[in-house]
Design a protein around this nucleic acid. Structure first.
Length: 433
DNA sequence: GCGATCACG
DNA sequence: ACGTACGTGATCGCC
């Protein structure tokens, strides 16, 4: 969609569309969602789009040069090792080189894929693999972010995204042209790129992110005593889960056990099966099954809730978030088992992901309003699902920080506290706490 | 225009 | 026996 352009004819239809929609809103009990969240959000999103975020164009161009150099030499090495020049960006051609020409084994169940997850398993078989993985990483970042962004800036070196309020099935926002919700953050390269997103002279960026908002919402919705307890005591949820699924004391939880537990916790929100858990953690199916059982026994209401939400979705045809946002699941009646199972997982996930979206949207409207009321110069500039990014004049940082944290944490009281981490810096890397 | 891939939450 | 973790957007090759 072309941004900032409303077709002239479209304006005349808005009132008649409103007249058609109003009875529907009433029937489906959506007036609160519409008037309290989505409508007030529109001017807030408009201001964010208009403000944009500043990037350091020189920094982007310099990094582009460096990456192009490394990519060129990687390319040369890869052609040398394979003994043929081909299009590295073509998965089809790459598969031919790896599996036919170099006769590398195809990991079972993976079927000639060249996805990084498969390539990692091939690392021991040829020195070409690590070079391909590095090439992929660099080329991705180069073509998706580093090269296009300087071209997309306005005269003040600011990038303006476009938020689509109607696109997702869960109630989240979508960010496009450019998407500023998938800027790299992981690894050294990600951290480096985030240094290129900067504040204006005399300003600083404030990043405020909800800590584990989806798991807190899970605790609230399921009313599971053990899960609620973890958050009331402000304990580390992943460590607690690790202790329960490994059946050890919390003091005995090691780093990799915590990492496993983190995947189990999020897997649960996504409706993951024991098989899926085994896949992603490279476990034996029996082990994964045991972890799942240990988890569900430790948090019994979570298990009950998962069953209940599916039963209700089948009966009524939809799920609802905390603010009544529905998502419909026609596939729960599908004879196609794949579609049916997928719909079940989506039905578990939608109320959680969607409720988090409801809450952050309400917080956005309220924080934006307060910052304007208090005459801050810029304010809210980005939302990345559970993080809000602000640009604030240096002299008033502490004042803004208080307003932001207080508003976000108290916007909608749950049975567990909402916790917000705040970071401040002259670039996004520094601010992202 | 779609599938594969991979960036994020 | 089956198929197997939710939600997105951008880029590229290929038909």
């Amino acid at each position: 969609m072309k941004k900032n352009v409303i077709p002239k004819e479209g304006v005349y239809y808005i009132y008649s569309i409103y007249q058609q929609i109003l009875p529907e809103l009433l029937v489906r009990d959506l007036t609160k969602l519409f008037y309290d969240i989505e409508m007030p959000l529109i001017p807030c999103l408009y201001r964010m789009e208009k403000r944009g975020i500043k990037i350091d164009i020189q920094f982007f161009k310099q990094l582009t040069k460096e990456l192009e150099k490394e990519i060129f030499s990687l390319q040369k090495e890869i052609y040398q090792l394979s003994g043929i020049v081909f299009n590295l960006n073509s998965p089809k051609q790459l598969a031919e080189v790896l599996f036919d020409r170099l006769k590398l084994p195809i990991p079972k169940g993976k079927e000639r894929s060249t996805a990084s997850e498969v390539l990692i398993e091939l690392l021991p078989y040829s020195p070409i693999i690590e070079k391909i993985l590095r090439y992929r990483e660099l080329n991705k970042v180069l073509t998706t972010y580093l090269k296009p962004f300087p071209e997309m800036c306005d005269e003040n070196q600011r990038l303006h995204t476009y938020f689509d309020q109607t696109k997702t099935s869960t109630g989240r926002l979508a960010s496009l042209s450019p998407n500023l919700q998938n800027i790299p953050v992981r690894g050294e390269l990600g951290q480096k790129i985030r240094k290129g997103f900067i504040s204006e002279e005399g300003y600083l960026l404030i990043s405020a992110d909800y800590s584990q908002i989806e798991l807190r919402i899970l605790a609230h919705i399921t009313e599971d005593e053990n899960l609620i307890d973890v958050f009331l005591q402000d304990k580390d949820i992943h460590t607690t889960t690790a202790a329960k699924i490994f059946k050890v004391k919390e003091e005995e939880v090691k780093e990799d056990m915590r990492r496993f537990a983190k995947m189990v916790n999020y897997g649960l929100i996504y409706g993951m099966s024991d098989y899926g858990l085994a896949e992603s953690l490279r476990l034996k199916k029996e082990e994964a099954k045991e972890f799942m059982e240990n988890y569900l026994n430790s948090f019994p209401k979570v298990k009950e809730w998962r069953e209940e939400v599916i039963r209700k979705a089948k009966e009524e045809g939809y799920t609802k978030t905390l603010f009544g946002r529905p998502r419909y699941f026609p596939a729960l009646l599908s004879p196609n088992k794949t579609l049916y199972e997928q719909a079940k997982r989506q039905a578990i996930n939608a109320p959680i992901q969607g409720s988090a979206a409801d809450i952050i949207k309400k917080a956005m409207v309220e924080v934006d309003r307060k910052l304007i009321e208090n005459r801050f110069n810029i304010g809210l500039i980005l939302t990345i699902h559970d993080e809000l990014l602000f640009e604030i004049e240096k002299e008033r940082i502490e004042e803004a920080k208080e307003i932001i944290k207080e508003t976000m944490e108290n916007i909608y009281p749950l049975k567990v506290p909402l916790k917000v981490n705040i970071g401040i810096g002259k670039n996004w890397q520094e601010a992202h706490s």
